[in-house]
């Protein structure tokens, strides 16, 4: 797969051409969350969007087949990776789709380079300036999770302000050390499609152990202020799972951003882009259809 040699990192990416091969297609760039990679999009929304756009998916630094430098993992630095990647690919502006931590990267990029972002789809994004602490203890499903974790012999500090990342790390460790237990737990928490692969889990652990990623990802910030969100004037589709812990961020996006539409995915948790692929694709297509010049149902651009 192609690699972009950027000054401080090598980024693995893939471009999927638009089906109609228009000379100047719209561009969609998709940003995945933590402990996953570009495959998060490949089997779901990415091929759907090629009906009317060239789609670029890539691995964040330290993830997938991108390189793992010793530092540079804050969302601000990853937004700079995104800028450099777009420069490398000659993409002047694009529609951004992002999930989870990828949403922080996309929002920071949009605040820094508003002229380069035509629209934003933000799927289950926790905005740190809005939700600086995310304690799983406060979540209504916490007791059920605790029970399942205890059965697997996993202790989790669910009062930690980043206990979601701690949970991900414990699941990764379990995936490497006791794959059968991990499979059962992953399916309980995320559904069959949210589970970690062994090498992906190993890479996540390796990144946390050998780089400054944890401190930088969970760093004090603030990466931006809540008021800055008012400057995001692009069309925004904020999607959030009904059972997600990121709902507060989605509500603030709706309140602060002048052109934001909020949709709650009924019965869904954090990983609805995987578990509710078809609904997710349908909502995104409707969002794009509502924007001037986009007629995705017809597979054409006007």
């Amino acid at each position: 797969m192609p690699l972009a040699e950027l000054p401080a990192v090598r980024i693995n990416y893939l471009q999927m051409p638009a089906e109609d091969e228009a000379p100047a297609p719209e561009d969609v760039v998709m940003v995945h969350g933590l402990a996953t990679n570009m495959a998060f999009w490949y089997g779901g929304l990415a091929p759907v969007l090629t009906r009317f756009a060239r789609v670029t998916i890539y691995d964040l630094r330290g993830h997938g087949h991108s390189s793992m430098p010793p530092s540079g993992y804050s969302p601000v630095e990853m937004a700079e990776d995104l800028r450099l990647l777009l420069d490398h690919l000659g993409i002047e502006s694009a529609h951004m789709v992002a999930h989870s931590f990828g949403g922080m990267v996309a929002v920071i990029f949009a605040l820094s380079h508003p002229e380069r972002v035509k629209s934003l789809v933000l799927a289950d994004v926790r905005l740190r300036p809005v939700q600086p602490r995310l304690r799983l203890r406060q979540w209504r499903f916490a007791p059920r999770w605790h029970e399942a974790l205890a059965e697997a012999g996993v202790t989790l500090d669910d009062d930690h302000p980043d206990s979601g990342i701690l949970l991900l790390t414990e699941l990764a460790r379990l995936t490497v050390e006791r794959p059968d237990d991990a499979r059962r737990l992953n399916e309980t928490f995320f559904g069959a499609e949210g589970r970690l692969g062994t090498r992906t889990a190993r890479r996540w652990l390796n990144m946390l152990e050998t780089t400054s990623a944890f401190g930088e990802i969970t760093g004090p910030g603030p990466d931006f202020h809540r008021d800055d969100l008012k400057r995001l004037t692009q069309p925004i589709l904020a999607l959030v799972g009904e059972h997600s812990i990121a709902k507060a961020s989605a509500r603030v996006l709706k309140r602060e951003c002048p052109n934001c539409v909020l949709r709650v995915i009924p019965g869904a948790g954090h990983f609805f882009p995987l578990s509710r692929r078809q609904l997710f694709a349908r909502l995104c297509l409707r969002f794009y259809a509502a924007q001037a010049g986009w007629r995705p149902e017809l597979g054409t651009r006007h």
Partner: peptide, 20 residues
């Protein structure tokens, strides 16, 4: 894993000089 499948598909496309 899923990322390996992407790599495999891309490798086929390159070898066969065919996309999609």
């Amino acid at each position: 894993e899923s990322i390996d499948i992407i790599q495999m598909v891309v490798a086929f496309e390159e070898r066969l000089q065919r996309r999609n």
